[in-house]
């Protein structure tokens, strides 16, 4: 567990990471603000069931991003095949709609300043 903790503490910016993964990223606006003024939310991605563990679990993500965007990111990060499924759960209870915004989930289900999302490759909680 000690090893896990180290990687947990290193926080990364999800939008930058995805750019390096060549996922379609947020539109780069001409000015130099580079999205720094955007509200970021800390999310913690936890594997469950048969899903591989992510080396980096804690990410800062733009509050306005939809959950579907995070699902795509995790799929790329884990290098899943296009036909492989990925399920995300909040509170280990329900699967949010892909168009649900991260800020809405954080507002209602965030704990200790972050939103915990469990992911797995098969349906875990109904």
């Amino acid at each position: 567990m000690g090893d896990d903790k180290q990687t947990d503490d290193v926080q990364s910016d999800l939008s930058q990471a995805t750019e390096s993964l060549k996922i379609e990223s947020e539109q780069k606006d001409g000015d130099s603000s580079k999205g720094d003024n955007k509200v970021k939310i800390d999310i913690l991605l936890k594997a469950t069931g048969n899903a591989p563990i992510m080396k980096k679990k804690k990410w800062a993500v733009d509050a306005e991003k939809p959950i579907g965007w995070i699902m795509e990111f995790v799929k790329k990060y884990l290098k899943l095949e296009p036909n492989e499924k990925l399920f995300l759960y909040v509170n280990q209870t329900f699967a949010p709609s892909p168009d649900q915004l991260v800020k809405n989930l954080y507002e209602c289900f965030g704990t200790d300043g972050k939103l915990v999302l469990h992911y797995c490759k098969s349906q875990a909680w109904g």
Binding site: V90, N91, T93, F94, A95, P96, S97, C108, F109, W125, G126
Partner: peptide, 22 residues
């Protein structure tokens, strides 16, 4: 159906910490 049931579960987490659905 999957979308509907998931939304009912989400509502129950808010109302009763998910205890009724579970």
């Amino acid at each position: 159906e999957a979308h509907f049931m998931s939304t009912v579960k989400e509502a129950d987490v808010l109302k009763h910490r998910g205890q009724v659905m579970s």
